[in-house]
């Protein structure tokens, strides 16, 4: 593994082969009732397993070639470098943002009304219906802006808040039938 990209190509080939084998040996037999061909009222017809089996076989073939090539040949081209720090931070921002979006509305309503009125009762009432979306959305926009700029700025906070409120208004004001996230699930 002395060439950059060689390890990645090998792993990629192995992942493709393992995924294809899992699909062919475990997933397709266990989760499809008909076979590759199926007999129904004495008529032979193509079963539901045909398409996924051919797709998995294609993946297996492509993965095998990629693996052999990674071992025998020197990979061409430049690869993007995946940064684990960026990946973990992005996942955290998305997870926190979505949690804030879903939980902050009901929590603030519960706090404000001391538990006497539920968020569900206020789903169609401003400003309550915007709270979760604005808090969670602003958080996401601010974090990604700060992350990609490598700096904190109150201007980013302001921009995130204004743009999220604008997005909420764009979707909510003209259209009665559209629900902002997460109001359709509550």
């Amino acid at each position: 593994m002395d060439h950059p990209g060689k390890l990645r190509e090998t792993v990629l080939g192995l992942v493709a082969i393992c995924s294809a084998l899992v699909a062919l040996v475990v997933w397709i037999p266990a989760d499809i009732d008909t076979g590759i061909v199926d007999v129904w009222r004495r008529t032979i017809r193509i079963g539901d397993a045909m398409l996924p089996s051919f797709a998995a076989a294609g993946m297996l073939l492509a993965g095998l070639v990629m693996l052999v090539r990674a071992i025998v040949l020197v990979p061409n081209g430049l690869h993007r470098v995946i940064s684990p720090v960026f990946l973990v931070t992005s996942c955290l921002v998305m997870a926190l943002g979505l949690t804030l979006m879903q939980a902050s509305g009901p929590f603030i309503v519960w706090l404000w009304f001391s538990g006497e009125i539920s968020y569900r009762q206020l789903l169609d009432t401003a400003p309550w219906k915007y709270i979760g979306f604005v808090i969670g959305g602003s958080f996401m926009i601010f974090c990604f802006t700060a992350l990609t700029s490598h700096r904190f700025s109150w201007r980013f906070v302001f921009l995130a808040l204004v743009s999220t409120v604008l997005i909420a208004l764009i979707y909510d004001l003209p259209f009665d039938n559209l629900l902002l996230p997460p109001n359709g699930d509550i």
Partner: peptide
């Protein structure tokens, strides 16, 4: 082969 892998994965 990466193209074939992508297409087969799309079918799956």
């Amino acid at each position: 082969f990466k193209g074939i892998l992508a297409a087969c994965f799309g079918l799956l």
